[in-house]
Design a protein around this nucleic acid. Structure first.
Lengths: 283, 283
DNA sequence: TATAATAATGACTGGCTGGTCATTTGTCAA
DNA sequence: TTGACAAATGACCAGCCAGTCATTATTATA
């Protein structure tokens, strides 16, 4: 295991147990059986470590969800979402603990922005999900369902945090899916209104071409496999020249989808392409 | 305004903005236009301040909810609950911020216990609420509804935190009540099972006679009004001698219900009495 | 083996903060 | 006005911790 990986894993454990502020760099490095100095060879600061941790998990979660929404067949989609989220919570329990306990805000404005950003990515994916299941609903009804889904997902996390009993996954998922469908098909009143939707849209950040380019460059630096590097290069060029047909782009994105480093790039690229398409269509 | 009050108010503001750890005693006292030393005349430590803050609001919230559940007529109960919670969140926005952001855990084990305790009080009140609305349901179905209600309440808090638009109270309440009723009357599958209920009950703390006595004593120290003091005295005696008829107890509890200092006592006393009654009945 | 280059170490620093306490300021009764 | 008592002050202390850097250990190369 690489040094960064090791540090991140041990740090996560300690953060989950003691909270970020009460965990010292010294403690983390003790856990790794390394000197404190070695920490600053792997990360430039404690802040960078925290940011890296959040990125690592939020990228994994949001981009997996997004991919699922894009690929999964309609009916089982909601079910799949809950199952995936359930397993993610379990598999990355230290991160989940950290997430529940340390409800962001620490340190700098920058982290808040980051979390809001990830939340938006998640909201968008979930919106797609709802959109596929309940096409006939209005935009604001769909967005309301997004929030209802998130609320139910939270029940699981909070419940296993507060009470000590573990919820049965199968039951939980089935129950949530049933309840949400009940709401979707029978509920008549919504708290999200058309006006509110407009306000919310104003706040949404777009994927910026510059940022996307930067992300691609950074990914290229960290990667060796020639196919991946070349794929990234072509994707990067396409941003400027728009010279490649959709099928090629699709294939290139397929190439990079299994590398963890590229997950974010793949996801953002996809969102960006849709954004551009939308722009073209509305012009 | 008393010194303690002033400090608590200003502290809350800063805590909500910057987080507990990043707010120094110095900053708080600057805000109060007082010296740092003066802080330690009002509180023995920063920890005590934090504890006092949590107590102040959680007691107000949980005991008000409890009283509401006891007094309100059935049909409007759920609605009342949402309205009250909504207003509480708004009225005490700094505290709500603190609560969402700083998901406890800081400092000592003691605080975690405290929050779990308050959560339990809330759960019990909500259970009563559900019980009155849906008597025919099983225990675990009711407990599941408690969690669904809490989940919906959280939507409001998270929503106004993440998105910037303010939700319309009337719409939100109506929508939640409708959705919960939908679930209560139509949902067929539950994730809370009989087994899980047993586990949960094991974890529940009871109100202890000794603790209750201590709380009464402490309340008496802080209070001057003779009627209140005498009421507390009688209630205290009754714990030992059990010499007063129910009607008298009821009246004494009425006497103290409007004093903030006594809110917790009143509430705990009521719970304690029920507990004892239950003990007697099951013997 | 000698030398250069790289990696790892941990004592140290500087900044910060909770908490203390000798001193000052304010109050009020005689 | 005086003196006694209480309240308020802020300089100071001790402890903590992120981050640095001169020194040491390890590895690669010639």
């Amino acid at each position: 295991m690489g040094k960064q990986q090791l540090i991140m894993d041990k740090a996560l454990e300690l953060f989950g147990k003691q909270g970020i502020n009460d965990t010292t760099v010294q403690q983390i490095m003790n856990e790794c059986n390394m000197s404190k100095g070695a920490f600053y060879l792997a990360f430039t600061s404690k802040d960078e470590l925290i940011t890296a941790l959040i990125d690592r998990f939020m990228i994994e979660y949001t981009s997996d969800i997004d991919q699922m929404v894009r690929n999964e067949k309609g009916e089982t989609l909601l079910r799949q979402f809950f199952i995936y989220s359930y397993h993610f919570s379990l598999r990355h329990q230290p991160f989940t603990n950290l997430y529940i306990k340390e409800q962001i805000h620490k340190l700098n404005e920058h982290l808040i922005e980051k979390m809001k950003y990830y939340n938006q990515l998640l909201n968008e994916s979930l919106y797609h999900l709802v959109d596929r299941l309940y096409k006939h609903k209005t935009e604001y009804e769909k967005y309301e369902l997004v929030w209802v889904i998130k609320a139910f997902m939270q029940i699981y996390q909070k419940f296993s945090f507060e009470e000590n009993g573990e919820i049965d996954m199968e039951l939980f998922v089935t129950s949530c899916v049933e309840k949400i469908d009940l709401i979707a098909t029978h509920s008549k009143t919504t708290f999200v209104t058309e006006d509110l939707m407009l306000q919310i849209k104003w706040n949404q950040v777009k994927v910026d071409e510059l940022i996307l380019k930067k992300k691609i460059m950074r990914a290229m630096e960290e990667i060796e496999e020639p196919i991946l590097v070349q794929s990234l290069q072509l994707l990067h060029e396409h941003l400027v020249n728009k010279n490649l047909p959709d099928a090629v782009i699709h294939g290139l994105l397929q190439n990079i989808q299994h590398s963890i480093v590229c997950k974010e790039v793949r996801y953002l690229y996809q969102v960006y392409m849709e954004q551009e398409e939308h722009k073209g269509a509305s012009r």
